[in-house]
Nucleic acid binder design. Structure first.
Length: 338
DNA sequence: TCCGTTACGGTTGAC
DNA sequence: ATGTCAACCGTAACG
């Protein structure tokens, strides 16, 4: 299990080694960037290392997702869902078929080539572990129905690794899978009210006990963030209740295409890269960069939405400057957590 | 000063 | 049931 408290980085931010930042923090990083705030200021404001900010923003610009990558597990080398499906079919049609026969058929039917043909032992394992009782079930199950259909038949791993018929997997960032394509496949974009509300729901996890946040003054972020690093709170990391967030995070990370929480983070891929300071007008930065992400009716103050950017005018980035200048006073407090 | 990159120590989960 | 391994994580430091 993870420690109740993470470690404290050089900026005074709390993190858990080996674990992703909470989604709320990731979301804020992207939001602040869209407001035209420089990554270095985001780093200081949120007390997240600039390398991490850089990484999250780069990933977001590339994939449109703020979510961390899939942690753990192994990519299927040969026993892809397709292969398993064919093995299952062979077994259904001929319950007495031998593993080596299945292997031959996979090759003969073109399901596999010589590079990704499973070994006999692998096929045996599949028969034992995944299709073990299928022979009996196949009596009253039609065709391709799996005994336990996964929530998302097209496994995310297959998407993530984009395992093709050819042996060579796509290296990350290969143009064969453009960013927007990856996003649509893994994180289908949506601008529905529900999805936007989903974003809000995450952020409100963090701010639910901060009514003053609804005024959406950027100056207040500092105070809120400070309150997000309580010296003695139960299981808060970066102000997010891990007990709430972690399971969803893990789920959404591993099954990105199947969960509403994943969709909640999906945004348009057309987020412009970070505006260099020379060309950034706060107005430009806001109006030109946030339309896809934080605009829309549900973000309007009518609902008291906390994160409406419309109250973040020119003073916004400047306020962050001031915050950055005075943050040292906060440091000892956060550092004293440990 | 800013930021892209990477070594490092860590976690995770399919196999 | 357990160990392995390759994916991922964020930080810190370098350039």
């Amino acid at each position: 299990l993870e420690p109740a408290f993470g470690e404290v980085n050089q900026l005074g931010g709390v993190f858990v080694n080996g674990r992703p930042l909470p989604n709320a923090i990731r979301l804020r990083i992207v939001e602040l960037a869209q407001l035209g705030i420089r990554p270095c200021d985001i780093s200081r404001q949120l007390r997240v290392s600039h390398g991490c900010v850089s990484k999250i923003l780069a990933r977001y610009n590339e994939t449109g997702s703020i979510l961390p990558g899939a942690i753990g597990g192994s990519k299927p080398r040969v026993t892809t869902p397709t292969v398993v499906k064919h093995i299952r079919t062979y077994k259904q049609r001929d319950p007495g078929i031998f593993a080596w026969e299945i292997r031959d058929r996979l090759l003969a039917d073109g399901v596999c080539d010589k590079f990704n043909l499973p070994s006999v032992s692998s096929i045996s394992r599949i028969l034992r572990n995944k299709i073990g009782n299928l022979a009996q079930q196949s009596q009253y199950e039609s065709g391709k129905q799996a005994p336990h259909p996964p929530p998302q038949p097209s496994l995310p791993y297959n998407h993530l690794y984009s395992y093709p018929a050819s042996k060579v997997p796509n290296p990350p960032g290969m143009p064969t899978l453009p960013g927007h394509m990856a996003m649509h496949r893994i994180w289908p974009s949506s601008h529905s009210v529900t999805d936007i509300l989903g974003i809000r729901s995450i952020t409100e996890q963090q701010i639910s006990d901060s009514p003053s946040f609804s005024s959406a003054k950027l100056e207040e972020w500092s105070a809120i963030n400070r309150s997000n690093f309580p010296p003695a709170s139960s299981s808060l990391v970066n102000g997010v209740d891990k007990a709430h967030l972690e399971p969803h995070e893990a789920k959404s990370t591993q099954t990105p295409s199947g969960l509403p929480t994943a969709n909640s983070y999906v945004t348009a891929p057309s987020i412009p890269p970070y505006h260099p300071p020379t060309q950034v007008s706060p107005y430009m930065g806001y109006s030109a960069t946030t339309s896809a992400y934080v605009t829309g009716p549900t973000w309007q103050p009518a609902s008291g939405s906390a994160l409406s950017p419309h109250s973040c005018d020119l003073a916004g980035p400047l306020a962050f400057k001031n915050i950055a200048a005075s943050r040292d006073a906060i440091h000892p407090v956060a550092a004293s957590v440990l």
